[in-house]
């Protein structure tokens, strides 16, 4: 995708300029229950303006319900929230919806209408000025200007998703909620959507991204939160990794060491170790200090070192670790 969103100017609908230190979203102890079932419970977080915030969780964790609640489509059961500077109340629904956009998981386009007709309808619903100009800018952002006259029904799934994204950009939203934006897309279309989100991020758009694709969140988000009915963790991906996993070094050697205990036991930075198929994994206090000392000790002990590298735990490892904890906690 080559089109890049233009620098965003706050629209008339988004005229409440944020003060320094303001948050695009402030959520405090928000809960939503459907009868006896909690969709999400006691959720609190803040999202700064210009931040790309990932909201992760398994299917049924309450991600979409959270988005719908913050988008005033459904009412919270308890708790408070401020969305784009406006208190979340039933009366404020139209004002909040004028300042945000939500791209649902399913594009929800009128398939018999053209791309242009779809966007004209939504420009009218947002009561936007300069309709043609805005539509052209939005379509240019998603690189679809040349398809404006095509019926949406004739577009591929990936292109429909891009039209939905153009629709979500029409009103220059203060907060853009993207609900599983790459769900069901092939790798090429997924990469195009990722590139577009990256462009939006560079333009300072606040993005609330729900996904269960962890590599997507890791690549795109400044911070992530992991939801499993309750909020389990929140922070930068690096922070989450550090919080959940001990730092470690993976060492590969040509042949196992005979006097391993003696070699490693003499290194104060090494807190523990275990043997792996091709070497050892060492728990260390600080990999930067431990690696040179370890290399020296191994060479002195006559080991043939193939590699020494810090273990990289992916966000997926963090996520699975958390969900495993959930499963363990629920076990009688």
């Amino acid at each position: 995708m080559t089109g890049a969103p233009e620098k965003r100017s706050r629209s008339a609908a988004s005229s409440l300029a944020p003060a320094p230190g303001d948050h695009a979203l402030t959520v405090e102890r928000l809960s939503k229950r459907f009868g006896d079932r909690a969709a999400f419970e006691d959720v609190s977080f803040e999202v700064g303006y210009g931040e790309v915030f990932g909201f992760l969780g398994p299917n049924g964790a309450g991600k979409t319900t959270t988005v719908r609640t913050l988008g005033t489509l459904i009412a919270p059961s308890s708790g408070t929230a401020t969305v784009a500077g406006i208190q979340l109340t039933a009366d404020n629904g139209p004002s909040i919806r004028a300042r945000i956009s939500i791209m649902p998981e399913s594009p929800g386009l009128y398939l018999r209408l053209t791309v242009m007709e779809n966007l004209q309808c939504f420009a009218g619903l947002y009561e936007l000025d300069d309709v043609r100009g805005r539509i052209e800018r939005a379509l240019r952002s998603v690189n679809l200007l040349d398809r404006a006259g095509d019926p949406c029904g004739s577009l591929s799934k990936g292109l429909r998703q891009r039209v939905a994204l153009a629709r979500a950009l029409l009103n220059d939203p203060a907060v853009l909620f993207l609900d599983e934006p790459t769900s069901g897309l092939d790798p090429v279309a997924t990469r195009e959507v990722h590139d577009l989100i990256g462009s939006l991020r560079e333009c300072g758009v606040t993005i609330f991204l729900t996904t269960h694709r962890l590599e997507e969140a890791e690549r795109l988000c400044d911070r992530v939160a992991i939801l499993s009915t309750t909020l389990r963790l929140i922070g930068r991906p690096d922070e989450l990794r550090q919080r959940l996993f001990r730092r470690s070094l993976d060492v590969r050697v040509r042949a196992p060491l005979e006097d391993l205990k003696v070699v490693l036991g003499a290194l104060p930075e090494v807190e523990g170790w275990e043997q792996t198929a091709s070497g050892y994994t060492l728990n260390v206090s600080d990999p930067d200090l431990a690696a040179p000392a370890l290399a020296r000790a191994l060479v002195a002990a006559g080991a043939d070192i193939l590699s020494i590298a810090e273990s990289r735990h992916s966000l997926e490892d963090v996520y699975l670790e958390l969900l495993d904890e959930d499963v363990e906690a629920k076990r009688p």
Partner: peptide, 14 residues
């Protein structure tokens, strides 16, 4: 049923 209602209700429309 077409899935087009939610995008409309997301706008400020009453």
């Amino acid at each position: 049923e077409q899935g087009t209602l939610e995008p409309v209700l997301i706008t400020p429309i009453r």
